[in-house]
Design a protein around this nucleic acid. Structure first.
Lengths: 133, 133
DNA sequence: ATCGCATTTGATAACCGTTATCATTACGCG
DNA sequence: CGCGTAATGATAACGGTTATCAAATGCGAT
């Protein structure tokens, strides 16, 4: 484990992730890769995603029903998401103020190594209209 | 299913939830009830918690490792939590500013019916000290 | 108070996503 | 080219949640 090797599988996962706009589940990504003809294994997808998340190249969050969702992450900066609970549309939101608030609040209470979960679930304009009829 | 019946089990779950300060996992709550001498079943705890969450008497969130956590929801006001990822210590934090920010951000993007998840996970002072030696 | 019946309960099995296992493959360096 | 070792992948194990279904129980009607 001393050195990370460059395998085509890892690249495939990275690319597949980049090519998607919203969040994808590990299984979804795996399915997509298989459909595209790749013989990549499920376990490998999980490992690759976990690695990407560790290095900071991907963001992960838990969907309301317990799945882990991943998303290619603009390398710099940490941002949050506004997610349509109906169609899955995802909007990135910069939240500098919230960042600061979170850090501040955590240290006010003596907490260290603070990570925060800040995500907003709602109905996007389109789905709101569709639901209103 | 037309009418909800009042069973002692449902009450037991509600009270057990009220008596706890932070978030509890369904299994944790079940364990606690069993320890307290109750013969309540695991499935029932899950059902009761889901019901409470539906009615709005409880809030639920997903822990980073995929468990569903529940907490009694103070009827008035909505607040967030600072949770020690090691010992589970939970501190309630008022977040008026964040509330407002979330609502604003959502509507800025045309989203409606916005709920937000805002929680901070970290290491509390005690656990930080313990981990540092 | 009692009856009747539909809802709820509870032990367990099924489910689903994730992680571990371990023999096999193949990257990377000399 | 060849070796050592990390990565892969099929599958089993795992843990939390949900479904199943017979038995128990609340609740309105009597």
């Amino acid at each position: 484990m001393a050195v990370k090797r460059n395998t085509w599988q890892r690249e495939a996962v990275r690319e597949a992730l980049d090519s998607r706009d919203g969040f994808v589940s590990a299984q979804g990504l795996h399915q997509g890769l298989r459909d595209a003809g790749s013989h990549i294994g499920l376990a490998t997808v999980y490992r690759a995603l976990a690695d990407l998340a560790n290095v900071g190249e991907a963001d992960s969050l838990q969907s309301p029903d317990g799945e882990s969702l991943y998303r290619a992450c603009a390398s710099t900066g940490h941002h949050h998401h506004l997610i349509c609970r109906n169609c899955g549309l995802t909007v990135e939101i910069a939240a500098t103020e919230v960042e600061q608030w979170a850090r501040q609040t955590a240290s006010d209470h003596g907490f260290t190594d603070a990570r925060h979960i800040v995500d907003i679930f709602g109905l996007c304009a389109a789905c709101t209209a569709a639901a209103a009829h």
